[in-house]
Nucleic acid binder design. Structure first.
Lengths: 187, 187
DNA sequence: ATTGTAGTAGAACATTTGTTCTACTATACT
DNA sequence: AGTATAGTAGAACAAATGTTCTACTACAAT
């Protein structure tokens, strides 16, 4: 395992950068200067960056972003694919503290590709627009529906032909949050 | 904004904990001891933890995990919902460096709730099992299909009635990766 | 064989870190 | 009024941090 991977692994495990002393042990070297030497290289390569005198990873993320499914992996000849690293937290969460994860119950949004058991990320306080999928409170029940309007009145539209549109009382209707993302996790 | 939020915000922005001096400025206090005093409280409350003499956030994450959609938000009377914080990176990525994100092209998996434009997280090197959705290389083209077998021979099964099963040559079939998650992101 | 270069080692160094001490202030309680 | 108590301030502190210096080694190039 190369230095870079060790540093990355340390960061993922401890949620912070290793100190020079810790790197000295990670790299299995005897001198702190050797660490400084290698750290400098990583700085030059752009793998690490220095901000306010503190050394940090240039890219904190956990997934490599490739192109499309059809394109697949870059011809695996060159083994180290150093495309962009992405943090899913940064990618999917705009407003920390206002973003919540809920599990989907029911089949009312199957045609929108939202199945029972899926996880949804919703953001509170976001202004809902027509066409958004929203988490609404109707008749003391929370439900996930498309938001639309007919003649100025809000309508909650399910994405399942078997379900009916809901015409809630505009005054009691409460849009709790707006859908930001759907996540389906496999084993 | 309370201390905790300031520390969290600093962490999200800088990907590291603030030093005492930085906290002193964040909290707008004059003495470093005041910082130590408040840090101690946060340690007692369990908001921060000390590992190897280093202070870190007890929970590094960006989304609050709630129950089901039906349950919705805890009766918003008590405004600060301090349920568990989750990091999507930790949640969705097992093997850092072996996990890739690709964009879905085509409609061959719509019935599995995987639409064109969705993002998939795949893991390389994972041993594929029957029933998994896999990223396979057939006829020099990458494709996303269910993996099954008939009479010991591998079959790639689309989740769309309009598409046909694929019976690839077992010797040339290459399973590049296994599907770990599907992500659909809205505006 | 000599020269050059990349990497390592070990020590010395100035800063900065987190900690600890005493002292002061404000507020609430009796 | 007096007395706790929680919070802040400022200074002093030891320990650890990242940096810098010189010296040594191994290998490659000419």
């Amino acid at each position: 395992m190369r230095d870079k991977e060790k540093v990355s692994a340390f960061y993922t495990e401890h949620k912070r950068m290793p100190t020079y002393e810790e790197m000295r042990m990670l790299f299995s070297v005897a001198s702190k200067n050797t660490v400084a030497y290698r750290v400098n290289k990583m700085l030059e390569e752009g793998f690490l960056v220095k901000e306010d005198g503190k050394i940090t990873l240039a890219q904190v993320g956990s997934v490599m972003v490739l192109g499309t499914v059809q394109a697949g992996f870059p011809t695996s000849a060159d083994e180290d694919i150093d495309s962009e690293l992405l943090s899913l937290d940064d990618f999917l969460v705009d407003k920390r503290g206002a973003t919540f994860m809920l599990e989907v119950m029911g089949e009312s949004m199957v045609e929108a590709g939202i199945f029972e058991g899926d996880l949804v990320l919703v953001e509170r306080g976001k202004v809902p627009r027509k066409g958004d999928i929203v988490l609404a409170l109707v008749e003391h029940e929370y439900t996930l529906k498309y938001l639309d309007n007919e003649k100025g009145r809000p309508v909650l539209v399910p994405a399942n032909k078997k379900f009916k549109k809901i015409y809630p009382n505009p005054h009691t209707l409460k849009i709790e949050a707006v859908l930001k993302a759907v996540i389906r996790k496999y084993r």
